[in-house]
């Protein structure tokens, strides 16, 4: 006769949480933070093809840590949802909050209903017209969602990384300072004997949502542009489409929106900032 073992719901949830936490903690970390010119994503990633940071929509991006196949599935779902909403309504009707809620529902359902939870932690970020208006959502494996204050870290030893970020992060940082702070924070953990590590540019995945662009604002910063940023020389906001073999198109200029038949009203207008003139424009050569 088969024995039925009883496990209390609390025990089951605890076990699943533990499994997910362990899986996430094994991976390398990722950092998202707001700076003066947009939202910056920096992830430790040995692969240049399998991304942890990706574009979802015009002003929304996605960063994740944990199991690649699981968060890649979530990323595709997000792109599909965003494109469906954008097609059936308008591009402006796609919001980070709606996506964060959908992710929370999905992850929550998977956590309670499936035998194994997703071992992922994700960030949905929407760039606003000012750093204060940026929205950063952290969604964890159990479907809980948090609105983060301008910066967040995910993955292994996230608390230590967050601590390093919190001390120095300011919303009016330049891109240079923001990238160097993020890399320093990522390197503050995992070194031998607690010493800071140096992380090479080839092990970093860096991308931004550029506040001053209209249309699609997501840009990756790779290759020479990234090295320049890390070394501290002033770099450009639309810096590194770099890698020449990269099939991604060059960035459309700020005066050239990724326009569509459906949103012709965006054309020829200043992007809808409350802030009037766009900053000091020092990292935007024209």
């Amino acid at each position: 006769m088969a024995m039925q073992f009883y496990a209390s719901p609390e025990q089951i949830m605890r076990d699943r949480s533990e499994l997910a936490r362990k899986g996430i903690a094994r991976g390398r970390s990722a950092v998202t933070l707001s700076y003066e010119g947009g939202v910056l994503f920096v992830a430790e990633n040995l692969s240049s093809a399998l991304h942890k940071v990706s574009e979802i929509y015009d002003r929304i991006a996605f960063a994740a840590v944990g199991r690649y196949n699981e968060f890649e599935n979530l990323r595709r779902a997000g792109v599909r949802m965003a494109d469906t909403i954008g097609l059936s309504f308008d591009r402006r009707d796609v919001t980070g909050r709606a996506l964060a809620n959908a992710y929370a529902q999905t992850l929550g359902a998977i956590f309670t209903e499936q035998s194994k939870p997703f071992e992922v932690e994700i960030c949905v970020a929407e760039v606003g017209s000012t750093p204060e208006a940026d929205e950063l959502y952290r969604i964890t494996y159990d479907g809980s969602v948090n609105d983060e204050p301008g910066r967040m870290a995910m993955g292994g030893q996230a608390e230590a990384v967050t601590g390093a970020l919190r001390e120095e992060h300011r919303l009016d940082m330049s891109l240079n300072d923001a990238v160097r702070l993020a890399v320093r924070a990522l390197g503050s953990v995992g070194g031998e004997g607690g010493a800071p590590r140096t992380i090479a540019a080839s092990q970093l995945e860096v991308a931004i949502l550029d506040r001053r662009r209209v249309g699609r604002t997501f840009r990756r910063i790779t290759g020479a542009a990234l090295v320049t940023l890390l070394n501290g020389a002033p770099a450009t906001a639309d810096g590194g489409e770099a890698a020449p073999a990269d099939p991604k198109p060059p960035a459309p200029g700020p005066d050239k929106p990724a326009e569509s038949a459906g949103s012709a009203d965006l054309e020829g207008k200043e992007k809808p900032t409350g802030g009037g003139k766009s900053g000091n424009g020092k990292d935007k050569p024209k």
């Binding site: 991304h51 595709r76 954008g86 097609l87 099939p247 991604k248 569509s260 459906g262």
Partner: peptide
């Protein structure tokens, strides 16, 4: 509109045009 979304969608999903 649908064609524009189709091309952008492929690019975002696959990371290449």
């Amino acid at each position: 509109r649908l064609f524009q979304v189709e091309l952008e969608h492929y690019e975002k999903i696959e990371g290449a045009m």
